[in-house]
């Protein structure tokens, strides 16, 4: 190996090493999910007064909480929830479609129950799946009543699959 060839090989090797080194910060930036949620239990979000809820009249509420969103700590809507009262008590169903994440609305044909305007999934009044393409019923969220106020914990679930897996 003469000097020219050695230098050339060294230059190519250094170039590859430099390019490889550049991949690291690039991958780190792409996989950085921000400062992340502060550890601990998800906050209980106030969504209204218990006395507002009447059987057969579901109420929708935005799940607004102060969260760390990348570079801001800000009030943010973490989706919405459908609240309903039945004989079994108060239930909170996520308004995020378990199919692909659109917002669920009441059915427009006057029947009780819910529908997704994107791909036309239908849900019964108790949130159970009536007709796909969604693979499962509406996702229930943790709910409690404290001093007459209904409180809900926000959560997101993996879309598109029949198993209810929190993300």
């Amino acid at each position: 190996m003469n000097r020219r060839k050695l230098l050339a090989n060294a230059a190519v090797g250094a170039g590859i090493a430099a390019a490889g080194a550049a991949v690291w910060p690039l991958a780190a930036a792409a996989t950085d999910t921000g400062a992340g949620e502060p550890p601990g239990e998800a906050p209980w979000i106030d969504v209204g007064a218990e006395k507002e809820l009447r059987p057969g009249a579901p109420l929708k509420a935005a799940l607004r909480a102060s969260v760390r969103d990348g570079f801001f700590t800000t009030l943010q809507d973490l989706g919405a929830v459908w609240l309903m009262r039945s004989a079994a008590g108060i239930a909170a169903l996520s308004a995020t479609c378990p199919h692909l994440g659109c917002g669920i609305v009441p059915r427009s044909d006057g029947q009780p129950g819910f529908a997704c305007p994107c791909h036309d999934s239908r849900f019964r009044a108790d949130g159970e799946l009536e007709k796909g393409p969604a693979a499962r019923g509406m996702d229930p969220l943790p709910v409690r009543v404290a001093e007459g106020r209904v409180q809900v914990q926000a959560a997101r679930f993996a879309p598109g699959v029949s198993a209810r897996r929190r993300v």
């Binding site: 792409a30 996989t31 950085d32 999910t33 921000g34 992340g36 949620e37 969260v67 969103d69 990348g70 570079f71 801001f72 943010q76 973490l78 997101r156 993996a158 598109g160 993300v167």
Partner: peptide, 18 residues
């Protein structure tokens, strides 16, 4: 790879600044 893809695209569990 669904979960990894989602977190790569949204930069977290929720749609936001990232």
């Amino acid at each position: 790879m669904g979960h990894a893809l989602q977190s790569l695209m949204t930069g977290g569990s929720e749609f936001g600044n990232l």
